[in-house]
Design a protein around this nucleic acid. Structure first.
Lengths: 352, 352
DNA sequence: CTGAAAGCGCTAACAG
DNA sequence: CTGTTAGCGCTTTCAG
């Protein structure tokens, strides 16, 4: 079997003590004469020396590592958030260690808050702490309230893509309300007055925020909000299709679906009934998933700033690590990115 | 600041030595009297004792951990492979530690094998080894040849979703050729004789294997292969659209696109020209991405067995860890999963 | 049945 | 400028 070279091997090879090797390799100026130092560096390179992280961290009692807990890594937005955290940590000289709870796979998509989840969370967090992480970012699979939290109230811990029901840990989310405000504003600016909304389930926090933003946009634009034109889907394609049918019967010129999958349902309805999206019907989705490109014209949509949420979460955790008494905002909200595409027609010139 | 309880705290609390605590907690029978043992367990529970992984692994010189190197975690199929590895390792009592090279983000999608990649790979592998991983799975972002490999020839190391150009490390891939064979067979079974193919670039290994499988299916079915009906796209939507135009002009009744994105292009062409997919034109895609559901009828497609590839890779690594002299297959190929949907019409009854 | 002691690889006083 | 030493938290002989 192969053995990784240790500081001891270098010491033996160069005829100095391990302390000297350690000092030289850690750049302590004047730890050895220039000749010896050079010799030590060369030996290290030749042996492909890599300090044993375990030993080093054990000794230093500082791992320079932040833990990431994902509810489920295979949910579409999670990897981008992880990526943002990694990018930021790398810039700051921190490592990351990932713990995936695999909630979807493990519990077959039953994601209501159960006691099992709390136990799994506690175990996951402890296993991360056993690895001496200095802080933790918790990534939800979808925006919702989380009832469990770390037992210690003073560890650097940030929720992202979800929010704690209580406690003082910060959370990072995206600006659902603001993005919907922009969508509403854009649709009005393009001349639309009768706009249909296909919301998610009324219990969804995302859906609530999106509806508020949209309503505020209409208010600010002086357009009456007609709640008959707001229907509630279930995030799935079929509900988009069904709601499109009703809304179009009511004579809307544009539809704002609260996710892309339902927007696809709308698109399908339009195709089936010979309505040209981007001319007869304008369409906005949400999530900016790859399906927005499946059609032509492409579906306008709202992109969540996943990478930026990751970066912000990491920044908050590192700040807290460096200054445990830092005052941090309870919630941080990152703006979304609007993608206005040809699915939205400008009808301001047309007769009503 | 909070401090995690150590074995020492328990020892002090229960009035025994650390050795006894360690023995009891590790289930050494008869390490202490039953009363004392109970007391120790209770103290551990009360203090939320969690053994320090660093210290434990340092001492044992066995981390029970396998490393995962991903080329890029944000590429759509990577997380599912990671998930499969995790699931298997968890069952076997192993932990995983993930190192994401972030190739896409870092090099702006320039993924030809460059010397920089080899250096990044070497660093990543070393950092994993510094954490004392016992083996490593390397996950490519897309199936292709990889020219670099670990410097040590005897470490447990498996490539997945890619293959090494040389060396004796095993690789795990999916059965592109077999899946395409099945697609060809299905299309013929549904009465299709003039079938258009939209391949990927001719240099792509995936595309080559898929074409072979398809050709073999025609051969076995006694259908002539007309290479005029095979066009080469570039994996993008527009090329699907363009190729569809040419193929349909040649009178094909079915189109097999080598990925779903190009299949979307075909779909778009059909919609634009009033051809009903699943009636006038049959369509098969590849990858089974979420966009297959964007249309109605849904696009038939081929699903890569990502989770299973992960599990198999993990199994190979663990086998090698447990028996360093185990003989292992150079390549393992996992069957794909065919999703036959309504985009494929049975035209065997129709006149030619 | 129980504990003292050594040591995994590394760093940081502290002496020389 | 260089080396000795102690110790991070844990396991494991080996005596008592």
């Amino acid at each position: 079997m192969f053995r990784i070279a240790t500081i001891k091997d270098i010491a033996r090879l160069t005829g100095v003590s391990v302390a000297t090797v350690s000092n030289v390799l850690n750049g302590k100026s004047g730890a050895a004469g220039p000749a010896k130092a050079k010799e030590i560096f060369e030996a290290a390179a030749r042996l492909q020396y890599q300090p044993n992280t375990l030993a080093k961290n054990l000794k230093l009692r500082r791992s320079h590592t932040v833990g990431i807990i994902t509810e489920d890594l295979t949910v579409f937005n999670t990897p981008e958030i992880v990526d943002g955290i990694e990018a930021y940590c790398e810039e700051q000289g921190y490592e990351i260690v990932l713990a995936n709870m695999r909630l979807f796979k493990r519990y077959d998509n039953n994601l209501t808050d159960t006691p099992e989840h709390a136990v799994l969370f506690a175990n996951t967090l402890r296993s991360l702490q056993a690895k001496q992480v200095e802080g933790v970012v918790y990534i939800g699979y979808h925006y919702r309230q989380i009832s469990y939290q770390p037992p210690q109230k003073d560890i650097p811990f940030v929720y992202t893509y979800c929010a704690p029901t209580e406690g003082n840990f910060p959370s990072v989310t995206f600006d659902d309300e603001g993005a919907s405000y922009q969508v509403g504003t854009e649709l009005v600016r393009h001349g639309h007055r009768k706009i249909g909304v296909i919301s998610g389930p009324i219990s969804s926090l995302n859906a609530q925020a999106r509806l508020h933003g949209y309503q505020r946009a209409l208010y600010d634009a002086g357009v009456l909000y007609n709640n008959e034109l707001t229907l509630y889907g279930d995030w799935n394609r079929e509900s988009g299709y069904r709601c499109a049918e009703q809304l179009i019967a009511k004579g809307v010129s544009a539809i704002f679906a609260f996710n892309d999958v339902m927007a696809c349902g709308v698109y399908a309805y339009c195709i089936r009934h010979n309505l040209a999206v981007g001319r007869d019907i304008s369409l906005f989705g949400y999530d900016n998933r790859s399906i927005v490109d499946a059609f032509s014209p492409a579906i306008s949509s709202v992109e969540s700033p996943l990478g930026e949420m990751g970066r912000r979460s990491a920044a908050l955790v590192l700040e807290k690590i460096r200054d445990p008494r830092a005052e941090q905002p309870r919630t941080s909200t990152i703006p979304c990115i609007l993608h206005l595409r040809d699915s939205v027609a400008d009808i301001s010139g047309r007769a009503e």
